[in-house]
């Protein structure tokens, strides 16, 4: 028999915060994935909302591409406010 598919579970821990990946679990369908996630990942009030996404549907960057993929940001230090020194006399900026 084939295994139940794998799901990635995301939990919103409080109102106003983003859902955050907490782990994965096996379940036959989306409804059971949510029910299992309730029991596996929120036994101590860790969440107010759950997302379940089939692991097979997640597209990810490859670790080998890390260099070329993120390099463009490295050289653009002017994107950070600290790049621009401000005189002490100038306030509220």
């Amino acid at each position: 028999m084939s295994e139940w598919p794998l799901w990635e579970i995301f939990i919103r821990s409080q109102h106003g915060l983003a859902h955050k990946h907490v782990g994965s679990l096996h379940a036959p369908d989306a409804e059971m994935a949510i029910k299992n996630a309730r029991d596996v990942y929120t036994r101590r009030n860790e969440g107010v909302s759950i997302w379940a996404v089939k692991s097979a549907d997640v597209t990810a960057t490859a670790p080998g591409e890390k260099g070329p993929l993120f390099e463009p940001a490295n050289s653009k230090i002017y994107r950070h406010p600290t790049f621009f020194p401000m005189p002490d006399e100038v306030k509220h900026i």
Binding site: W4, D29, M32
Partner: peptide, 11 residues
């Protein structure tokens, strides 16, 4: 085993 199989068949 039958529970796992039935849940998958239902899904």
């Amino acid at each position: 085993a039958w529970v796992r199989e039935a849940a998958l068949a239902y899904a």
